[in-house]
Amino acid sequence: MAHVFTPATTHDWRIPLGALLLGLLAFYLLALDQGLLLSLVQGNVAFDQNLVHEITHDARHAAGFPCH
């Protein structure tokens, strides 16, 4: 039987995709950001202040993510 795409099945890929992207964003904030995200609003000063990195600092170290 052929599958007919209904609104319900189109939602099927949106939710996992949304969960995937949100999960990757949370991972990025926790583990990777070195100022890039806030540089979008703060400009270059964000790389010096590195606020996201500083706030997640202790968790980055404790969870074993690369940190300086």
């Binding site: 969960a19 995937l20 949100l22 999960g23 990757l24 949370a26 991972f27 904030l29 926790l30 500083e54 706030i55 997640t56 600092h57 202790d58 968790a59 980055r60 404790a62 969870a63």
Partner: peptide, 19 residues
């Protein structure tokens, strides 16, 4: 930063919960 420890591990839980 000490408070950030909790924020960070909440992000850890959120990350792996979602993925």
């Amino acid at each position: 930063q000490r408070a950030g420890l909790f924020l960070g591990f909440l992000l850890y839980g959120l990350t792996w919960g979602l993925l």
